[in-house]
Structures are given as C-alpha cells and as structure tokens.
Amino acid sequence: MKKNIQLHAFFFFLLLFGFCVNLSVNAQEIKGIVHELESSQRLRDVVVKNLRTNETTQTDAEGNFMISGNINDLLTFTQSGYEVDTTFIYQEGIQRIYLIRDSKSIVIDEVIISRLTDSRLAYEIERAKSEGQVTEASQTRGGLRVSLSRLFGRQSKMARKNLDLLLEEQNNRKVDRLFSEQAIRAIVPLTDTEMALFREQFRPSLEFIETASPEDIRAYVLDSYGKFKSGK
C-alpha cells in the first residue's frame, strides 16, 4: 500500500514537472521595434496590444517594445496619425513593425495636427491660406490675376489640401468643446466604450453648435441617447 502511494506520488510529480516545463517553453516575451514605413524612423509611444491576453504596453523613445506572448498570437499597433496595424507572430526573434501614415492626417514640422495648440493651428491655417492663393497682384495692369505657378505648383496644391484638413480639425475642436465627455455625462449615463461610439456616431454639425443654446444641446443629447440605446 505504501509502495503504491509512493508510486502515485512519483507519477504525479513527473506530470507536474512536465506541465511546468511546458509552460516555461510556451511562455515568452515578444520583443520588437516599430518604425514608420516611409522614413524608417523609430516611433515612440505606440500602443501594443496582445489580442489573446489583452495585455498592453507602449514603445519607448527608441521604438522598442516587449510584451508577454506566444507564437501564433496577434498583436495590434496603434498610434495617432497612423493606420492601425495587426501582426501575426509566427516566429521567434525581434519583430520589426512598419506603420503607414493615416491618409487623413497631415504633419506640420513633424507634429500631427491633432497635437497642435489652438494658436499654432490658427497660425498654420493662415499660412496655408497664403501659400495656397492662386491670385497675385499684377504690376503692369493693376488688380489681381491668376498665377499659373500658384494654381498648379506642387507647394500651392499641397497647401490647399492641408488647409481643408486644418479647417476640419479647427471645426471639430469647436464642436468637441461643447459636445465633450463631461457635458454628455452630466446628461446621460454612458460607459467609456459607449462614450467613444456615441460621440463618433452623433457628433453634431458646427452650424448647430454655433447657434444652439444649452437647452438645445441637452435636448439633442437626450434624443441621440435614445437612438443610440435603441440601435437606430
């Protein structure tokens, strides 16, 4: 009887040891470096998430990251101004990730427009207006004339394209100041996840915000909340 107990204990120890060894083999740290595709510049503060474990981390100043994971895990990489990338981990070693700039974002002196201060944003708008002008003063006939170089020049065309995005960012900020999370939560109960979806789905127009009274905004939020909860 005693011998049987010892034998069972021995096999249990072997089983437990094998399980622990298996865990140590499978568990590992995934390491990598995140770059920008076009410039190969290393990107800091990129949010890295393991979709299996929901663990998150961020890249350091040199673009390096380390996160717990296994082979066959899926990682997502999120950074403002860049398209979200998903990478399948199929081998060991340093993972090199290359992010592509979001086509809807522009960069002013290496700063994404969403991070510009309001005063800097206003300055860039005026500069884009100036660089994108297609008319110039005529020194021979007086008045204004269309400048072909400004109309078709690369810098001028880029300035006019950037101006649209800069004005859109400025308008969005005006809306967000009144359609803020704090203002919405004072009227209706929403979780953090619901809040992001609600603000994206029911963001009011600038024209409405500029003319609406506090009572109008409250009524708009309540009406939108009803539609949001009913799935309409």
Rank of each mutant, 00 (worst) to 15 (best):
P204M: 05
Q155D: 15
T135H: 08
I100A: 14
T76G: 02
L167V: 15
G69K: 04
I30R: 01
R96T: 12
I33V: 09
I71A: 06
F12L: 13
S230K: 14
L178K: 14
N26W: 11
A122H: 12
Q201F: 04
D216I: 00
K157Y: 06
N26K: 12
I100L: 13
G142V: 01
D73T: 02
G226W: 08
R42W: 03
F12H: 13
E126C: 09
F10Q: 15
L37W: 09
F17A: 15
N72Y: 10
N171A: 15
S103R: 10
A9T: 12
L75R: 00
I89P: 01
L116A: 00
V48P: 00
Q41K: 11
K227A: 10
I184T: 01
D102P: 02
S180F: 05
E55G: 05
S138Q: 06
L121K: 04
N70R: 15
T211P: 10
K232M: 13
Y225W: 05
H35L: 08
L151H: 06
A122M: 10
L222V: 10
R42C: 05
I30N: 07
Q155Y: 08
N72F: 08
E181G: 09
N171P: 01
T117Q: 00
E136H: 02
L190S: 03
L23N: 12
M195H: 04
Y220E: 04
R185Q: 02
L14S: 08
V111F: 02
G69D: 02
L148E: 13
L222T: 02
S149D: 15
G231K: 07
T76M: 00
E110S: 14
I33D: 05
D223P: 01
R154A: 13
I89R: 03
M195Y: 03
I125W: 03
Q201W: 09
I71F: 07
D60H: 05
N172C: 00
V146Q: 11
V34K: 01
I106P: 02
Q28E: 14
R101E: 15
E92L: 10
I97L: 01
E38S: 12
F13W: 08
G32D: 07
L163W: 02
V46D: 05
G226T: 09
I209S: 04
L163M: 03
E169C: 02
F152V: 06
N172L: 07
N171V: 07
S114I: 10
R96N: 13
I112W: 09
F65D: 00
D45N: 09
F19H: 09
Q79K: 13
V48R: 02
L190R: 00
K129Q: 10
E29P: 09
L151N: 05
F208G: 03
F10T: 15
E207M: 14
S138R: 06
Q6K: 11
N54C: 07
G153T: 03
V107D: 11
A122K: 15
V84S: 05
Q41V: 10
L15F: 11
V21Q: 14
